[in-house]
Computed example of a mutant assay.
Amino acid sequence: MPAKDIYHDTVKLSLIKDGWTITHDPLLLQYGTKDLFVDLGAEKILAAERSGDKIAVEIKSFISPSPMNDLEKAIGQYILYKNILEEIEKDRLLYLAVTNIVYKDIFAEPIGKLVMQKNHLRLMIFNSHRQEIEEWIN
């Protein structure tokens, strides 16, 4: 089982505060003979429909000395998980969870915008101090 990101509990609490139910911690993806783990699986039930939205959330802290190295790893992991989810669980959307600071420093910059657009990247932006989701970007 992979190590948890430093913001794992913060993101989990932020999702719960936003009305999500954590269904998997972590979410196991099995494809062929390989097992992969997305940090969290969550669901939000819409009472009127008796169904809901299902998401998978991969949490990234971007705390290494090289933010571009962190970006490369995060995007590679995101694409791999997204491809597998599209095959085995089409109704679950994948989000990359990053702090509001990482969003401003990387994803609001031209290189981040390019990566988001070209890879159809979904972001969940959270405030680590308030433990709240600030924005969802689809």
Rank of each mutant, 00 (worst) to 15 (best):
Y95P: 11
P65T: 07
L96K: 13
E86W: 08
K113L: 07
A97P: 00
L121V: 11
I137W: 05
Y78E: 04
D105T: 01
Y103N: 05
K54E: 14
T21Y: 10
K113G: 04
L85I: 07
I75W: 00
V98M: 07
K118F: 00
I55P: 04
G19T: 06
M68I: 07
I55K: 04
R50W: 11
Q117M: 15
I106P: 00
G32W: 01
D105G: 01
V98I: 13
V102L: 01
T33N: 09
D70C: 06
L36N: 02
K118W: 00
L13M: 10
V102D: 00
L80I: 14
I84C: 06
D70A: 07
S51M: 10
Y31P: 00
D9R: 07
D105P: 00
H8Q: 05
N69F: 15
W136G: 06
I125A: 01
T21Q: 11
V57A: 03
S128T: 10
A48T: 15
L29M: 12
N138Y: 03
F107V: 03
E135A: 11
I6Q: 05
A48S: 14
A48R: 08
K17T: 01
D25N: 13
L29A: 03
I55T: 06
L114R: 04
E109Y: 07
A97Y: 11
I59V: 10
D35N: 15
Q131I: 01
I111Q: 04
G32T: 03
I6T: 06
I22E: 10
E134W: 02
K82V: 00
S66T: 05
F107W: 08
V38C: 09
